[in-house]
Design a protein around this nucleic acid. Structure first.
Length: 855
DNA sequence: AGCACGCCGACT
DNA sequence: GTCGGCGTGCTC
């Protein structure tokens, strides 16, 4: 009779494999999700049990299996999170171990540390060595790393430590156990009293004071705190500890970023909800109470008060003793939201984000997964933190592309949270002023929408609607520039209309925000004699001149170098610096409005001096700045309240990107920027400058008509066979050797089209470049595959073509775009099969479901 | 990721 | 003849 077999995901980057082990009865009953120690090669490794019902016949390997060594208490994956992983694996088709590893606690990559742990009161009659070891463990708070204990034990022979440890563990009050740790938890030493023989007279007054305090508040204060309370120095306290008149005991000290700052715990004044807010809350509260697992799309244009609705729903969930997950698209937006929420919600909050230290992340993970924290706030990674009592999830700015992971395993946090809510029956609210086209579509789908729509229609903080002007850059006067200033303004797209409005705004002592979605000074360095354009050899992209550091830079790979003095092709000088980026707009504004205070905010200025960048924002808020010029950074979230004029210098920068989402992204950016101007009692003005004044993204953002924009966009998407009518699967081959990359992608294409998929007609155009959508030459609709087989039913595969970024970081790239029916899972096993069958030395294959970008 | 095994230069 | 360089390849 052989013991049971189980499949384990090992905590090592093992390619894409699950390993099988025997479960000896000694390891106790194992359940899926349990954390275990397993042998791997010659070492020991942590892992997670995935299935325990494997039969020998299912295994593809012969020979004896190794056995699980032991179970690790704590650190397991909860059954509902394991189900979530399986659902994500089925949906994206990407590697299961990669997905699971997102849901496990933050663990150090290699080691499983064994901890000496006190289980009971220390036994009596120990040998001196064992008693010393017991004392060490006691001082460390009852738990200690074996290796650290060995060091602290002293330079005695190793056998002395071993036998002392042996003595302790055989006394059953101690055990050596594996634990999952990313870092050693921060310990703080607390002081407590010793039973003193009464009437001791050899103590000073301050020493007595310290001892009295320690007696009254045992294990509550550290050395410095106790000294402070007794109004004496830390030396007094330390000497008491040294004389063993005070005891020291370490215990866990939580690190949470919120403890550090003193956000006032004052309650915000009660707000009277607008009628539409009240209506939304009226729908959400019963859903939270009854745990209906419904999905809601909260459409609230800027300044319509979405946050108030979130808070009302969250309060209800917290009142009922449930946990709340609140997602924000990026770290920068976390802080203001938390500050606001802490004024209305007085419950323990945890925060996770990618810039935390490992210790902070581990602590916040633990506080969330034990239920100590009731509200978890964070960006994408927050979706993976276990919340055992979740009763509500909120995704703010739900249209934001930041929720989708752009590396393997390419999960979309929104999808993860949807599934989490479906499993736990917690309602889900996703909110935005500019929901994604797919999200609108799902809220209106015929035959039972996945999302119920809640609209906010009033603007409690706004005096009037911003007045928006569209400037057609193609219709500016064609006459030659009269002055140098005129020429500078034209080069920087400062139209007369915009100049006039800036002047008016400055005269009223109000601030302007100008958005230019391109960094640097000039995006093209052109030889006027031969037409040569300076490009990056690794990416074939035009180099951008940055005046800030007088270098040219590739915006693809970030390479920098000095600009050539003369044309490398024909030696002509000087070269022309064509087009404009943020730096050139700054220069033009300084020339045109010499008395205005002008500043720039983009990735470059942010990277160069972070603190200065934050000061720039403060300056704007406090009226110390007149014109702020920046990239999308300044539209997204950054609270530019005291601004009455906002302008987009050249909307075409985003609109002309070769991506089916370009129009939508532009619409969202413009709508956001327009919504920012004119709050706090000042009527707002906005200017949109463009060469495409009739584009729906321009016209409808100016009218703040998100629903009508979506209607027009849906038509283009339908014609172009893009989401939400098809699911996109992108397969990229990449190599420094172009023919080899091409050969691999061609083989993959043959493989995919020889399967029971439909293939497109020959000679089809590159739909990545032909993003206009309405002239696509794909078959009108997917037809079911003739022979079933469960793989890739209804998939449409387009022939391989060079990526838009045909060369990137020195590697040539080709791609296949495949289309699946909307809401169809990626065909099981297809991606693995492609990668394993066609992987070749020197050629990388990337398979990306639902790609964020098609570049 | 580790840690093997493995096949070619400077040392006893 | 050995020690060791880090190039592929496997880990149940």
């Amino acid at each position: 009779l052989s013991s049971a077999l189980c499949q384990v995901v090992v905590n090592a980057p093992l390619g894409r494999k699950l390993l099988a082990y025997e479960c000896p009865p000694a390891s106790g009953p194992l359940r899926p999700g349990d954390a275990v120690v397993v042998p791997l090669g010659s070492r020991e490794c942590a892992g997670w049990v995935i299935r325990t019902d494997i039969s020998v016949s299912e295994l593809e390997i012969a020979g004896p299996l190794k056995s699980i060594i032991e179970k690790i208490e704590g650190g397991g994956v909860r059954p509902e999170d394991l189900r979530l992983c399986e659902a994500m694996h089925a949906w994206y088709g990407t590697n299961f171990p990669d997905i699971l590893s997102l849901f496990v606690p933050p663990v150090a990559p290699k080691l499983v540390r064994r901890i000496v742990q006190v289980l009971d009161a220390p036994p009596t009659g120990l040998s001196p060595a064992a008693a010393q070891l017991a004392e060490l463990v006691q001082q460390a708070g009852g738990k200690m790393d074996v290796r650290r204990a060995k060091t602290a034990f002293g330079a005695k022979p190793a056998s002395a430590f071993q036998s002392a440890l042996q003595e302790l563990t055989s006394a059953a009050a101690y055990a050596v156990r594996p634990e999952l740790l990313s870092t050693t938890p921060r310990q703080k030493k607390f002081l407590g009293p010793v039973q003193l023989p009464s009437g001791r007279t050899d103590l000073s007054a301050s020493e007595k004071m310290v001892l009295t305090l320690a007696d009254q508040h045992p294990w509550q204060y550290g050395v410095a705190e106790l000294a402070g309370l007794a109004q004496t120095s830390t030396h007094v306290v330390r000497s008491l500890v040294a004389r063993r008149l005070l005891l020291e005991r370490a215990s866990r000290k939580w690190r949470t970023p919120l403890e550090r700052d003193d956000v006032a715990q004052v309650s915000a004044p009660e707000v009277v909800p607008t009628p539409s807010q009240a209506r939304a809350i009226g729908e959400l509260v019963p859903a939270v109470r009854d745990q209906t697992g419904e999905f809601f799309l909260l459409y609230g244009p800027t300044a319509s008060g979405k946050t108030h609705v979130y808070e009302a729903a969250a309060k209800e969930a917290l009142r009922l003793g449930r946990q709340v997950l609140l997602m924000v698209p990026e770290i920068a937006l976390t802080r203001p939201l938390i500050e606001r929420i802490r004024r209305t919600i007085h419950e323990p909050v945890a925060v996770v984000h990618s810039r935390q230290t490992p210790a902070e992340r581990r602590d916040e993970w633990e506080r969330s997964s034990t239920g100590e924290a009731r509200l978890l706030v964070g960006p994408r990674s927050a979706a993976f933190v276990p919340l055992p009592e979740i009763g509500l999830a909120i995704i703010d700015e739900c249209h934001d592309a930041g929720y989708k992971q752009s590396e393997s395993p390419y999960l979309d946090a929104r999808r993860v949270v949807e599934e989490k809510c479906a499993i736990t029956r917690a309602p889900l609210i996703v909110g935005s002023a500019t929901p994604a086209v797919e999200q609108w579509h799902e809220a209106e789908a015929a035959g039972g929408p996945r999302y119920r729509r809640l609209d906010l229609t009033e603007f409690p903080t706004r005096v009037s609607r911003p007045v928006v002007s569209i400037v057609d850059l193609g219709k500016l006067p064609a006459s030659k520039p009269q002055t140098d200033l005129d020429r500078v303004c034209r080069q920087s797209f400062l139209s007369p209309v915009l100049q006039g409005l800036i002047e008016e705004t400055l005269a009223r002592r109000q601030a302007c925000v100008l958005l230019m979605n391109r960094r640097g000074f000039a995006p093209q360095i052109l030889c006027p004699a031969c037409g040569h354009t300076e490009t990056c050899g690794d990416c074939l992209m035009a180099m951008v001149y940055h005046a800030q550091d007088r270098q040219i830079s590739c915006h693809g790979c970030g390479a920098r170098r000095n600009p050539p003095a003369a044309c490398p092709a024909c030696a002509y000088a000087p070269l022309g610096y064509m087009g404009a980026g943020t730096e050139r707009i700054v220069e033009a504004c300084r020339a045109r409005f010499p008395s205005a205070r002008v500043a720039r905010l983009d990735q470059d200025s942010f990277r160069k001096n972070r603190r200065r960048a934050f000061e720039t924002l403060e300056d704007l808020k406090n009226g110390r700045l007149d014109i702020l010029i920046g990239t999308q950074m300044i539209a997204k979230g950054l609270d530019v309240e005291h601004v009455s004029l906002s302008a987009v210098i050249l909307a075409d920068v985003g609109l002309n990107m070769p991506d089916y989402r370009a129009r939508e992204k532009t619409f969202q950016l413009l709508a956001q920027l327009i919504g920012r101007s004119g709050r706090h009692g000042i009527p707002g003005r906005a200017v949109l400058q463009t060469f495409q004044p009739a584009s729906p993204a321009i016209v409808l953002s100016a009218q703040e008509e998100a629903p009508r924009f979506v209607e027009s966009e849906l038509e283009s998407r339908k014609a172009g066979h893009w989401p939400p009518f098809f699911r996109i699967l992108r397969i990229v081959s990449q190599s420094s050797n172009a023919p080899r990359a091409l050969q691999v992608i061609r083989k993959i294409y043959e493989h995919m089209t020889s399967m029971d998929f439909l293939s497109p007609r020959r000679g089809e155009r590159n739909e990545v470049r032909g993003v206009d959508g309405d002239d696509e030459s794909l078959p009108p609709s997917p037809q079911p595959s003739p022979a079933g087989g469960g793989r890739g039913e209804g998939m449409i595969v387009s022939p391989p073509l060079p990526c838009v970024r045909a060369k990137w970081k020195g590697e040539y790239r080709f791609q296949i775009i495949a289309r699946l029916p909307w809401q169809a899972p990626v065909p099981h096993g297809l991606l693995d099969e492609i990668v394993s069958r066609y992987r070749t030395a020197g050629v990388k294959i990337m398979t990306e479901p639902d790609p964020v970008s098609l570049l």
